[in-house]
Amino acid sequence: MSISTLRFSILSSMMAALMAMGAYLHLPIGPVPIVLTNLFVLLSGLLLGARWGFISAALYLLVGAMGMPVFYGGKGGLAHLFGPTGGYLFGFVLSAGMVGFISHRIRYSLLGDIIAVIIGSLVIYAFGVPWLKFMTKITWGKAFMIGMIPFLVGDTIKAVGSLVLARSARPMLFRQIG
């Protein structure tokens, strides 16, 4: 096993741990408290690329599925993963992979990163809102009203935050991985 693979494995664990910590970090902005898990999901794609971003988000779900309290509000377990908000959690995995793929393809330019985080955020909703609708048997309008609209401002702040952090941390990360 090469040192590079080992380093990326540990980096994925780090990002999964940051996603878990994000569930415990609130920013009291606006009526809906902003939890920072999705910021780290987007960041994992921006920093680690498609493959390892995908792995780190999947690792976060695995740790949560085992019952560790790493989801929002200290929840954990398979029941929560397959509950009404499970779609957002599965969306995290694809979102991290997608952000990494786009960001890498557009060679880490600012424009590429912006496109990547916008698409990444939309991917989370693309999984979360239909899942919420079918699990709770509500109308599409209500699903959008409770599962998307209140979070848009917060998600914009988180997307910008992930961009700022990625551009600040990338030089350090690239120095480490050579």
Binding site: I3, L6, L18, L27, I29, L39, G161, V164, S168, Q176
Partner: peptide, 29 residues
């Protein structure tokens, strides 16, 4: 400013985390 709040809180954590990852990777290797 929420952006400054995010940066001032998360950037130090991220930098510490990256340093720790390097130490752990080298120790395992």
């Amino acid at each position: 400013n929420p952006f400054k709040k995010v940066k001032s809180l998360l950037l130090p954590i991220l930098k510490k985390a990256l340093m720790e990852v390097e130490e752990v990777s080298l120790a395992l290797a």
